[in-house]
Computed example of a mutant assay.
Amino acid sequence: MPDTSAHPAQIGTHTWLERTGGALSPRERRQLLRPLAAAHLANAAGRISGLARRGPGRYKTTGLNLGPAPDSRLARAAESLARHRLTPALLNHSYRTFAFGTVLGRLSRLDVDRDLLFAAAMLHDLGLTSPTPRVDFTLVGARAARDLAEQAGLSAPATDTLLSAITLHHSPGVTPAYGPVAHLLSAGAALDVAGLRSWTVPPRTLSAVTSAYPRLGFKREFIAAFRTEAAHVPAGRAAFLRRYGAFELAIRLAPFHG
């Protein structure tokens, strides 16, 4: 039989997700192991440096005032939908994801479309509240984003950027090569969920973001939501992260309370 596995760069994009429903082939699972292992090593080294008070974040400064949230038609619609569909803990996670992604972008000097990053952050976990058998949860957020993008008159390239940022966000190894929106959405979410790159951010910035958007028992709720997602899509990325990524342990060890 022909090999229908996607190129590593395509795994997790919205076109791949529409075709596969989020089910990884054996080859695709193997392809994701390398970036997953790299993330584990970086997290371990970074957390150790942070505990030793040598994390680079201690020596960096970045403005604590992130400014007002984007106020475009797309941003307002995405925020309204998130407020209607997400639990309080997931909603605050979405705000923190945008804030942390913005901070990481500033520290990396990445220029990013704030409207697209904000909309993606608001919608990226929409599907966790309504898991569907054999359908990756990010497809729910991507389809909602496509509808909102059409209503807002977003261009086709911008819509593609928005949708793939949402569907890619929990794939290992979403580097800047995938574009600033996808990279910073994934990085912001990973920082809030598992503490990845937390050691690169000034401690006062971490505290300011979590004070503005309290966690509200986020760790417990997110672990339960990912267990449910993995059960609904046993060949999906959530199940992959739980099996090979010690995902629940990473969440519990994240340097945040609640």
Results as ranks from 00 to 15, higher is better:
Arg83Ile: 09
Leu81Asn: 03
Asp192Phe: 00
Ala69Leu: 15
Leu33Ala: 11
Thr87Val: 05
Leu86Asn: 03
Thr61Leu: 14
Leu168Asp: 01
Glu28Pro: 13
Thr129Trp: 06
Pro88Gln: 07
Ser94Tyr: 00
Thr205Pro: 00
Ala177Asp: 15
Ala78Leu: 13
Gly258Ala: 11
Thr4Leu: 14
Ala238Trp: 08
Tyr244Arg: 09
Thr62Lys: 14
His40Ser: 06
Arg146Trp: 00
Asp160Gly: 08
Val181Lys: 00
Ile223Trp: 09
Met1Arg: 08
Ile223Arg: 05
His170Leu: 14
His170Cys: 14
Gly63Cys: 11
Ala239Ser: 07
Val209Thr: 12
Arg85Gly: 12
Glu18Thr: 05
Leu123Lys: 01
Leu107His: 07
His183Thr: 09
Lys219Cys: 03
Val201His: 06
Leu107Gly: 07
Phe256Cys: 01
Glu18Leu: 13
Lys219Leu: 08
Pro131Arg: 00
Leu184Asp: 00
Arg146Met: 06
Pro35Met: 01
Leu128Tyr: 12
Val140Phe: 03
Gly105Val: 12
Tyr178Glu: 02
Arg243Met: 02
Arg30Pro: 02
Arg96Lys: 10
Asp125Gln: 02
Tyr178Leu: 03
Ala142Arg: 04
Thr97Ile: 01
Asp113Tyr: 04
Leu41Gln: 07
Glu229Tyr: 01
Trp16Ile: 03
Gly63Gln: 13
Ala190Cys: 12
Leu139Ser: 05
Asp125Met: 04
Gly55Arg: 10
Ala156Gly: 04
Asp147Ile: 08
Gly46Tyr: 06
Gly127Gln: 02
Pro202Cys: 07
Ser5Phe: 06
Gly46Ile: 00
Thr200Trp: 11
Pro176Glu: 05
Ser25Asn: 05
Ile11Val: 14
Thr102Ser: 14
Ala238Ile: 10
Arg227Ile: 10
Leu107Trp: 09
Leu81Met: 04
Leu32His: 01
Leu139Asp: 08
Pro172Thr: 13
Ser171Phe: 14
Ala120Ser: 12
Thr175Lys: 00
Ser130Cys: 13
Ala9Arg: 15
Gly153Ala: 05
Val209Lys: 00
Leu36Phe: 12
Gly22Leu: 05
Ala254Pro: 00
Phe247Asp: 06
Ala194Thr: 13
Leu51Met: 08
Arg227Met: 09
Ser94Phe: 02
Gly55Asn: 06
Arg243Val: 01
Gln10Tyr: 11
Pro202Tyr: 03
Arg76Glu: 10
Gly101Asn: 13
Ala165Phe: 07
Arg58Ile: 14
Trp16Pro: 02
Ala45Ile: 07
Gly46His: 03
Arg242Asp: 13
Leu81Ser: 01
Thr4Asp: 08
Pro26Met: 03
Arg252Val: 07
Leu17Val: 06
Ser164Val: 02
Leu216Met: 15
Ala246Gln: 10
Leu117Phe: 02
Ala37Met: 14
Asp147Asn: 10
Pro88Arg: 04
Arg143Val: 11
Asp113Glu: 06
Val233Ile: 06
Ala190Glu: 09
Gly141Phe: 06
Ala44Thr: 13
Gly127Phe: 01
Tyr213Ile: 11
Pro157Arg: 05
Gly195Glu: 03
Asp3His: 01
Ala89Asn: 01
Gly153Val: 10
Phe98Trp: 04
Val181Ala: 03
Arg27Ser: 15
Ala190Thr: 08
His93Arg: 05
Thr15Asn: 14
Tyr178Ala: 12
